[in-house]
Structures are given as C-alpha cells and as structure tokens.
Amino acid sequence: MKLTFIWRVVFLVAGLILADRMVGWVMHSAIQRQRNGVYYEFKYKVTQAKAAIVVLGSSRANHHYNVNLIEEATHEKAMNYGQDGTSVFTHYILLKTLLHWHKPKLVVLDIKPGDFGGTQNFNEVAPLYPIIDEVAMDGDDLNMVSPFEKIKLYSQCYRYNNQVLEILGSTRGKPADTSAITGYSALPVKSVVLDNLTINDSSFNSSIYKYFKQIILLCKQANIRLIVCTSPCYRPVVFDRTIAVVETECKISGVEYINYLNNTLLPFDAGMFKDEMHLNTKGADAFTQDFIKRLPPF
C-alpha cells in the first residue's frame, strides 16, 4: 500500500468536511437573507411573529382556524402553524422551538381522528431542520426520526436536504409583507361529492401518544394555557381511539378539550367542506366563529 493512497483519502475526507461546512455556511447565510417564500414565512412565524395565540396541528389546523377572525375578536395577535401531513411529533418539536423564541398566552392544538393510530414516519420533521437549527432537537427526539439522525446532522449540508433551491430562490424578489402572514390558508368553495362512510378506528401508536403528553407537560411547565380541539369532519365518527384517549388524557391533566365531531348543533353540511376531512373557507369561518365563543377572556 502506497502512502499516497492514504494521503488521497485524508485529502478527500478533509475536502468533504470543508465543502460540507462551506455549503452549510452559504445556506445558513441564505436563510438569514431570505425575503419571501414559504421558508421565509415559516421562519418569520417562528422567530419574529411573537403571537399570543398559537394554533398547532396538521392540514386541518392550517385550513380550519381563521386567525384573522380570532385576532378581531380577542385583540391579540394570533398565528396559525398548521402544516400539511404532520403528526403530533412535529407539533411538539415546533412548540419546543417556538418557546425558545417567545412564550404565547394560549396554545390551540388540533387533533384529528386517527392521529395516534398506525405507523408514523417521523422523518416528516426534516423539512423544519433549517428553521430549528438554532434549537437542536435532543437525542431522544432525533432517535424517533431515525437511529442515525444525530450522525447525519453532523453534516451541515444535510439539514438543508431538498430545500436548497427554495431557500436560495427566496433570497431574490420582492420582500414579503409580514403583516399579511397569518399561516391560515383558506380552501375554496367547490361543489364536491362527499362520502359519509363512518370512522371506526381503534389503531393506537404509543410513541405518537407520548408526544401528546409531552405537549401538555411543556405547556404546564411554561404556564401556558392549552386548548385541545378536534375540528369538524364530514364523516360521522362511530369510534376513534385517538379521540377517546385525548378525552381521557385531557380530563386527567385538567386541559380543556373541545370536540366538534358528530356536532349537530352547527350547520356543518356538505356545502361547508372541501373534502371529507377539510372545511372550505365558508366552513372554516363558521367553525372559527363558534370556536372564538369558547375561548377564554384575555
């Protein structure tokens, strides 16, 4: 074995580390210089918005809670952090990151039927790495994503995996109007055919449920009021293990739980829905108006 081979390997490894750090540095600077785009808005919501009322959840939270109506009614700044295709795990990581920047007065957590069921790909949190890089997730959280996530994150590039073009693109163009950033995204009113198959789901995944309890604990420790809510869905619910567990856990922990499933008092008919699980803008406004009535006084 020639010595040159070892030197080549050393140079290569050193070059790789250097290139990784350099690209990481470029991306980090790009994040600071963003002017618009999805990542800019998300970063703004997390680090600068400092909202008093925070809505967490998946796409249902994103499309159901019209925070403009909440702001008008409460005269407090409200922000919607709902993210498509995310689970309670991501909501927990997001809340932890938010608390690093400021302490809201109220957290609204939207839980949907089946949230604690089935298998969950915790890798869903990866797109948030560029936002939460200042507040590293601890070892246990990273292990949920993958047993090797901690090792992967030694790379400065990896945290920007698949976000490079979006982040670089957002450093150009017109600056976004931060006053218009609310996080709420309304779904259009369209006539659609909806099926009313009943929900009867008894699946349960304790590792997801664990993060629901962590959210309750985090809010208690930070002395933040937490409201857990299940917003309306078109399908009638016969039984849902997630909802049953949430009801019990909220009762035990003294957390307010509002359940809109099977709600016959409000006119949540087909005209209010975009699909079986999502309200359209008309439905979202009707739901938010009712939800506001249940909010505590500020």
Partner: peptide, 20 residues
C-alpha cells in the same frame, strides 16, 4: 476525480431522499 467524488457526496447530502 476528487472534485467529482466531492460533488457526488454533496449531491447525495443535499438532494437525496432519505426515507429508508
């Protein structure tokens, strides 16, 4: 050769889909 290896490594880290 070395630059190509580096580019491939960075390409995998930045644009790879890590979903097992």
């Amino acid at each position: 050769r070395m630059a190509s290896v580096l580019m491939l490594c960075l390409g995998i880290l930045l644009f790879g889909i890590f979903r097992n």
